[in-house]
């Protein structure tokens, strides 16, 4: 084997721990140098978090945020993968869709909120749609671009073995684009998460994370603000680095053996 290209094992964990320590240090340094009503320290915020987790209301809000994220992100994955794959085999459709995405993607998803709020009413739906929109574009785009680099010999081989169009999509295109699909899904998750928090802050429906953060700000409860930010950071990191990474290593097992 030639030189190792990535860190593995304990060294990798050490790097992660160092990064967390670095962030915590900056936070705590800010807390020491600013008055506590402006920037609370880490222990105070952790205490508040432990308190909050025991409250029914906080847990319900968290669950609400997660279900909005799940619906929006789920829709985006489903349609993004579907459109991306179909674009892979229908060339004209691909160019049309790509142009449409390039135009629509330039609009920050949060800019749709006023429109959706009035069309769909005050509730879960406009938030879910904004989340779905934010995640759909990177998802569809990465799958569609990946279909272009599927090796022609892989397609020909399946056709010679008698594959139907549907079998080609499922047995050749889908596994062939899987690495890019997962990268796209991670990118899409980042977009979905940002859209969720901002839409919740803006719309203020229910007791979600974004709403709770905005409310703490309105009443100048800095401990609440920092606690919500902490929860946002922890949840996103867990979903991205643990759930999606594990999924990636499972699906792309063949690359790791």
């Amino acid at each position: 084997m030639s030189q190792a290209r990535r860190l593995t094992g304990p060294k990798k964990y050490l790097a992660v721990v160092l990064a967390i320590a670095f962030i915590a240090l900056i936070w705590q340094a800010a807390a020491w140098s600013l008055p506590s009503f402006l920037m609370p320290g880490i222990p105070t915020v952790i205490d508040r978090l432990i308190e909050a987790v025991q409250q029914e209301e906080f847990r319900a809000g968290l669950l609400g945020s997660m279900s909005r994220l799940g619906s929006g992100y789920g829709f985006a994955l489903l349609f993004g993968i579907g459109f991306g794959l179909v674009g892979g085999v229908l060339f004209f459709f691909r160019e049309t869709l790509r142009s449409a995405i390039v135009i629509l993607q330039s609009i920050p998803s949060i800019a749709w909120v006023p429109l959706f709020l009035i069309v769909m009413g005050f509730g879960n739906l406009p938030i879910i749609v904004v989340v779905a929109l934010a995640a759909f574009f990177p998802m569809a785009l990465s799958v569609m671009n990946a279909t272009e680099s599927v090796q022609p010999v892989h397609v020909s081989a399946a056709r010679v073995m008698g594959a139907s169009r549907w079998q080609l999509l499922r047995r050749v295109y889908l596994p062939a684009v899987m690495p890019e699909l997962i990268t796209g899904a991670q990118l899409a998750f980042g977009n979905a998460w940002r859209a969720l928090i901002s839409a919740e802050m803006l719309i203020g429906f229910g007791q979600g994370l974004g709403r709770s953060l905005a409310y703490s700000g309105e009443i100048a409860d800095m401990v609440g603000v920092m606690m919500n930010i902490l929860v946002i950071a922890i949840l996103a990191t867990l979903i991205d680095q643990v759930v999606l990474e594990k999924f990636k290593q499972r699906v792309l097992r063949y690359q790791y053996v």
């Binding site: 892989h154 081989a157 056709r159 010679v160 062939a176 063949y254």
Partner: peptide, 19 residues
Amino acid sequence: GPGPRRTLVFQEHALYPWL
């Protein structure tokens, strides 16, 4: 059109790397 009664063996790289 293609059909399984007539099959083609390619030079290389025609196996699916994910299988």
